[in-house]
């Protein structure tokens, strides 16, 4: 087996609100190998982003990571002090946020923002940081980088700002890159460019990538493995071909059949998943997906499925496959 870079075991992040405990992430497990890419798919509120923020150590009260392990090259990040985490963030793990329009500081020139991370982690002076920034801007395909580097974020388009975000994230050559819906806020044409870029740089830098998205198209394009999340739990995990072509979990079926198909004949209607995602502060007994599941059995409403490896590399959490 290849070298494992990031290993997440039984991660649970709860939010202690006045209305009760919200179980945003409720037992997430996965492994990420060097240079590998994992897609995390799910509806809004399925715990994708909170998983990412937990890994980054950026959960703020009233949220708290209550249990689990996050091992980056064997070291548990949850046991690190704040100072140690500051050294790891940006250097070993970096993150790209969803909205490039608001993720850049409006009063700083983009060059300064890229150089900031470099100066911080590589202990170089400002001038060298600036040089690295210029190099990075060229790498992410920004034309006329020498001019752009002195510009302010509001002078750039959304696609360019996302390129800048990618440049910032990769400037210290992190081992893991977490991209939280990096293309959601962009036009379709720009989306394709950004995905191409991420794929290219991932190869170039040998960065392991976690791609958080609700777009299965994005996953198909960039990822090797997929984790489908529902109500804070992974419900299906496998390589991308298996998930897209032989999905086992009813929720994955639902997701796939709610996508439009280009080769569909005539006026085929899309099939939505009925119902609403469950209230994470008040999860149903048994399987969280049971209330919306067209294939539910009596056992589904009584007992939580524990999950099963159908084959090495294909995990499903559903009573349909439990003996």
């Amino acid at each position: 087996m290849a070298e494992s870079i990031l290993e997440v075991k039984d991660l649970r992040t709860y939010f202690y609100t006045e209305a009760g405990v919200v179980k945003a992430v409720n037992g997430v497990n996965f492994r990420l190998e060097k240079g590998q890419s994992l897609g995390v798919v799910g509806e809004s509120g399925s715990g994708k982003s909170i998983t990412a923020l937990s890994i980054m150590g950026l959960i703020k009260p009233p949220g708290r990571v209550i249990s689990g392990e996050i091992r980056l090259q064997g070291q548990d990040l949850l046991k690190k002090s704040r100072k140690e985490l500051e050294k790891i963030r940006g250097n070993d793990i970096a993150m790209i946020f969803q909205d490039p329009m608001t993720s850049l500081n409006p009063v700083l020139r983009v060059g300064e923002q890229i150089a900031e991370a470099v100066v911080l982690h590589r202990k170089v002076n400002r001038k060298e940081g600036w040089n690295v920034a210029l190099e990075m801007l060229k790498k992410v395909g920004i034309p006329e980088a020498e001019d752009r580097i002195r510009r302010f974020p509001h002078e750039m388009s959304g696609g360019m700002r996302q390129r800048v975000m990618i440049a910032i994230a990769l400037s210290c050559n992190p081992k893991v890159l977490i991209a939280d819906e990096p293309t959601t806020a962009l036009d379709v044409t720009i989306q394709a460019q950004i995905l191409d870029l991420i794929r290219l740089l991932q190869k170039d830098f040998e960065t392991a990538t976690i791609m958080i998205t609700h777009d299965l198209g994005v996953v198909a394009e960039v990822c090797r493995n997929v984790m489908v999340m529902y109500a804070g739990q992974p419900v299906e995990y496998s390589d991308v071909t298996t998930v897209l072509e032989q999905p086992k979990h009813p929720y994955t079926w639902g997701l796939l059949s709610s996508l439009p198909k280009l080769n569909a004949s005539g006026k085929q209607r899309l099939t939505p998943i009925d119902g609403m995602p469950p209230d994470l502060g008040n999860l149903p007994e048994g399987c969280a997906f049971a209330p919306r599941c067209p294939h539910k059995k009596p056992v589904c409403e009584r007992q939580e499925p524990s999950g099963k490896w159908l084959s090495p590399g294909h995990f499903v959490r559903c009573h349909l496959y439990e003996a």
Binding site: L58, K87, R89, M95, F97, E116, A117, M165
Partner: peptide, 14 residues
């Protein structure tokens, strides 16, 4: 609460 502050924190800024 702005995203760029979160982003800066994600870069390990103190």
């Amino acid at each position: 609460e702005m995203e760029y502050v979160q982003a800066a924190r994600a870069l390990g800024v103190s």
